[in-house]
Write a protein that binds this DNA or RNA. Sequence first.
DNA 1: TAGATTGTTAATCGATTAACAATC
DNA 2: TAGATTGTTAATCGATTAACAATC
Lengths: 214, 214
Amino acid sequence: MRKEKEKVSLPVIRRLPRYYRHLDDLHRAGVERISSSALAQNMGLTASQIRQDLSCFGGFGQQGYGYNVERLRGEVAEILGMDRVHTAVILGAGNLGRALIQNFPFQKYGFQLTAAFDVDPKTVGTQIGGVPVFHADGLEAYLKEHAIEVGALTVPGHAAVRVAQRLRDGGVKGIWNFTNIELPEADLPGVRIENIHFADSLLTLSYFISEEPL
Amino acid sequence: MRKEKEKVSLPVIRRLPRYYRHLDDLHRAGVERISSSALAQNMGLTASQIRQDLSCFGGFGQQGYGYNVERLRGEVAEILGMDRVHTAVILGAGNLGRALIQNFPFQKYGFQLTAAFDVDPKTVGTQIGGVPVFHADGLEAYLKEHAIEVGALTVPGHAAVRVAQRLRDGGVKGIWNFTNIELPEADLPGVRIENIHFADSLLTLSYFISEEPL
DNA sequence: TAGATTGTTAATCGATTAACAATC
DNA sequence: TAGATTGTTAATCGATTAACAATC
């Protein structure tokens, strides 16, 4: 039973996918139940934090027993929206776009990738891993025809903002942004943006491996 | 002049690449100086936070004037280690590996990508964007021969932990992990790990676009 | 000089950790 | 029943914001 979700903090939300991942591993390893302290050790968190986090959504455990792994995994999946099917398209069928289409298990996370869009005449009209590639000019018509919730943005940086706005105008709810551009949230009201900034990540790594000595 | 770096918190460090990005944009737009409040507006932060963040590393501004954009950009670059050349190799030359090699501007961030490793006989022995692809069996010998600081991990999940340990044994300082596997930091002492978890990011987006109504 | 803006100290806010009564 | 472990309330810790003297 889920609590009314008043206002769950971002740090908690960002830990949920990790909970899911660990619970899924445990489940597939045949583990039936786990206590918050065992899970904490497993994940490198504190038991307190886990109980605090989960209590944002409801009481999923049982005193003296702990949590049923399969049930908790299911609850977390539901909280994350994995129990519904989300439609998605991908913008840009270059190297990165292809890599995502061919390797990323969208359906495993509840997503259905229905189309890719590009401008390269060599790829437009083909299929990649069963996903048809349409010309970007047809984006508006496509979005009108199909209810698409998420657009994965793997276009070149100079096209990012323009394409993002076209997605928004087409009614998309979320943008999964792989460009190194910071999308202007002010110009994209109502759209949730999730960034994967490769460069920021590499520079963070650079910081740590560069620490003294000179 | 840089302060002794006592202990800078992770949130601050993770904001540094964003500072760099914005300062670089401003610089290229011809902006010479900027106040903390203008930069704050620009980035969606508070002026206080910016001054607080920067003061972890030194006093880069001037009362009544603000910050010199080019100088501050340089300071942030130096803090991030962008003024040095870092060597890197990439493990796994599949779709994602290729995408990184061909599209990611390593040198722009101070990195020199010297080699890729794979096991596929079709790609081993070839070059991708000027980067030679060697057989993974030769990794140890290569790492002994060349001082490599970072390994970008784009191998299939089942190989991730094993390859990570080989990188560590070979003396690598950091691992840029693109697999959806959580690398066991306990087994990788002394190695800094920076994760790009596509799935976690998409699930976070899923959470937000799934919020009520059912 | 007067106005602007820093760097830093103090105040507030939020997130994590600890403690414990409830209870399986 | 006794032992284990939850969910929640209270305490602590850390990060962000506000305030202001210093000074360009």
